[in-house]
Amino acid sequence: MEWITDYFQFLAERYPDILKYTVEHLLMSIGSVVLGIVIAIPLGIYLSKTEKKLVNSFAFTIVNVFQTIPTIALLAIMIPFLGIGLKPAMTALFLYSLLPLLRNTYTGIKSVDPKIIEAARGMGYNSLQQLFRVELPLAFPYIISGIRVTTVYIISWTTLAAVIGAGGLGGLILSGLGFNSKPLIFTGTIMAIVIAVLADHLIGRVEKRLSYK
């Protein structure tokens, strides 16, 4: 039982630093996902609308390729272009977030019943009204679940950002591995899990609140 008191003592001593690592981690993952949302959702909408098949398959292939590059490798590829630290880390995480966001947006829009779209058109919705009042609300469950999944796994992948000097909870874990400190490894891991679970829960609530079904 001694380890529990030891661990609490560790937490009491180190909580400002743990908090700092956690906040870094949170900002980095959320920043990447937000960036992903800003790019992938409009792109997904565009792709679902365009009739140019070539553009479509090209975009999906590119994004797919990013997805298949191992995290460590993608981080390494970034360094010659973007140096070390936050920039390459967030760029890599952002690239990873693209595929699920893009795919869910695309599928979501595509899944809207064509009959409903025809009703909207026939009633005199112009294309923007149709998009914002009919298609996006109906695609919302797909899009939000894409955001949910993406956020959760980006939070977990953000731990690797510490390898290239971007900080975050990965720093705690790497340090713990380096000098044999179980409290550090444990805290880093637990905090990453806690953030991921909280994010999942929070987005899940938004999903429930805003989805029509």
Partner: peptide, 15 residues
Amino acid sequence: PKGMEVQLMYTGVEN
């Protein structure tokens, strides 16, 4: 202060 992979420290200095 930033933690990172050792080799990258030198990349960082170089850049």
